[in-house]
């Protein structure tokens, strides 16, 4: 079995690893790096439980090979809270009860991070379309929409206050 050496930065830490080309990015993250916050829900890129940021954009890591991430930056749910403080999205999901079983939550949050990056003040409609590739079986989505709105507001307020 031939392997490829890849160098990937995950949550700010660089990893150089020999991997089989067929190794899926989600398994690389979960098994090789032991970052088990990224989940697998469907295998067919429909559910979004495996969503991570690849060079800042949300992707479904069950449909990406680890070798495709060579030389790139990855952010997973484990990299969202910085300096002990929850990311506004994490806070929003808690405050607005945007999660129940928690299984879709990491992927949902990573997707929403990309959404807010591109559209800092989305409407309910835009949020719903924006998370349409992430399935949640528990919440009925109402409170996820509110969680994203909570985060958007908080992030804009933070932006408005000069550091």
């Amino acid at each position: 079995m031939s392997t490829k050496k890849i160098t990937v930065t995950v949550n700010g830490t660089s990893h150089s690893v020999e991997v089989e080309p067929r190794l899926l990015l989600v398994h690389f993250i979960r098994e090789n790096l032991n970052l088990t916050g990224t989940h697998i829900g469907c295998d067919t890129s429909n559910c979004g439980a495996c969503t991570v940021l690849l060079n800042g954009r949300s992707v479904k890591s069950c449909t990406v090979f680890a070798v495709q991430a060579n030389g790139k930056n990855i952010k997973t749910i484990e990299g969202m809270a910085e300096g002990g403080a929850l990311h506004p999205l994490q806070e929003g999901f808690k405050e607005e009860h945007g999660l129940q079983c928690g299984f879709c939550t990491p992927g949902m949050i990573m997707r929403c991070a990309d959404l807010l990056e591109r559209n800092p003040n989305p409407t309910e409609e835009e949020i719903r379309w924006g998370i349409s590739g992430n399935l949640c079986r528990c919440t009925g989505y109402n409170n996820i929409v509110k969680a994203v709105q909570y985060a958007a507001k908080k992030m804009q307020e933070a932006e408005a206050v000069p550091a």
Partner: peptide
Amino acid sequence: MKRKEDARFLQGKGNYIDDIK
């Protein structure tokens, strides 16, 4: 009351079956 279980789920620290090694 806000949920006590949320902290781990929000930070990728839930412990689901496939996380057990």
